[in-house]
Design a protein around this nucleic acid. Structure first.
Lengths: 220, 220
DNA sequence: ATTAAAATTTAGACAAATCTAAAAATATTT
DNA sequence: AAATATTTTTAGATTTGTCTAAATTTTAAT
């Protein structure tokens, strides 16, 4: 089966939304896609006809098994291309998202497989997100956000929740990247902000909102 | 200015046609694009409005200076991606055209420049076609097709005129690639076919049609 | 120079993806 | 449970790129 760019974008967005909340509704998808609810409804019918979606009107929806497979292939392509852009073309990691949004729709399966091999079959993209393999299997990693880490324990940054350029620019400013070693020195009750220590740097303070989007795993 | 994939494809095809014949007409473009003459006329109006085309009805057409610039950027992207696919991802050179047709429409200028650098700023793609630089300048090479080479002179294959997979498959069969050393032993008047000698191989015979599509340059 | 043939354009239709405005269904509040 | 608000869907329009069939213009042939 072959899909249009628009269909693939809807499928991918539905996938990401249902990862968080199980079932998806029209308005949240419209918000995510930056379009109108009416347009979403139109597309839902199309995707239902193609058996990619479980959907009954007014009842919310989620991807069928087939739909999920399609989504995972698009996610796979997106993340492989991001890896390529950062590792090979030396893009800053906060500049690659928009380009990968285009590249993820290139259709050749052989291209994807060869790219994967060329890159050394990476398991995580430059933001720390797992890259599904050829069969859609996703590597797992035991991670938590910074607000849940016991004080003084040294942990390693493994991924970033919010990948808006604003967030990524901020992390760059704080000098936080994937693999950075951090420990939490203090938690301020008043606003939930954290004082953290980054290896070889002076302690600094990050807001709760930022901390919630920094995922880490324990060194051992 | 930004262009749709369809617009870019028309511009590119017009560019290639006018390279051969100066001015382009509706039917030949329709044939090249595998579409109908009426569809071509529709698009011509659009391109004329955008000042990409010099066009008056019933009179044929050619690209404006702006149009030519756009065409050269698309050609540049196509050929850089082909180079990438063959050199980095190890695709056979006769398998890359269709994929490059998709990749050439990825829009980021920075991507193109970084890709160019990553590849070592190549001057020719895997079929021997010149890759326009950032400013649209095309490297030239002094080449002729095999039918015009004096007998016994050893020459080097530098590009291939017809890049249909059928042609490329045939060349692979004959063991001819870019850089291959060839000499013409004999020319048969009857059908114009040539007996040629390839380094370390037995002499063989190629049709005039094939010979006309093999471009070579003199070793010195 | 007419006529016939070929090339090109117009007119009108269609599919995909979107939109606005209005209607219908569901959820929430009083 | 009735009234109100929110969410979702429908109806109908729009844009882009395409098509067929008919009309027009140009070219070639008698």
């Amino acid at each position: 089966m072959n899909f249009t760019i628009s269909e693939e974008n809807y499928i991918k967005s539905i996938y990401h939304l249902q990862q968080q909340s199980g079932i998806v509704n029209t308005n949240s998808l419209a918000a995510q896609m930056q379009t109108r609810a009416a347009s979403v409804t139109d597309m839902l019918k199309k995707l239902k006809n193609k058996k990619l979606l479980q959907y009954e009107r007014y009842k919310g929806f989620k991807l069928s098994e087939t739909g999920k497979k399609v989504a995972l292939q698009v996610v796979r392509k997106h993340r492989l291309w991001e890896f390529f852009l950062v590792e090979k073309l030396k893009f800053d990691w906060d500049k690659v998202h928009a380009i990968a949004e285009e590249l993820e729709h290139i259709s050749s399966d052989e291209l994807v497989q060869r790219l994967d091999n060329f890159l050394g079959n990476p398991s995580f993209d430059p933001h720390g997100d797992p890259i599904p393999d050829k069969n859609g299997r996703i590597p797992t990693i035991n991670q938590q956000n910074l607000t849940n880490i016991p004080l003084k324990k040294t942990v390693t940054v493994s991924s970033v929740g919010n990948q808006a350029p604003q967030m990524l620019e901020m992390l760059k400013h704080y000098n936080i990247a994937l693999g950075t070693q951090v420990s939490v020195l203090n938690k301020f009750e008043f606003d939930g902000s954290l004082q953290i220590k980054i290896l070889k740097q002076n302690p600094c303070i990050i807001s709760e909102q930022v901390a919630k989007n920094i995922f880490v795993h324990y060194a051992e």
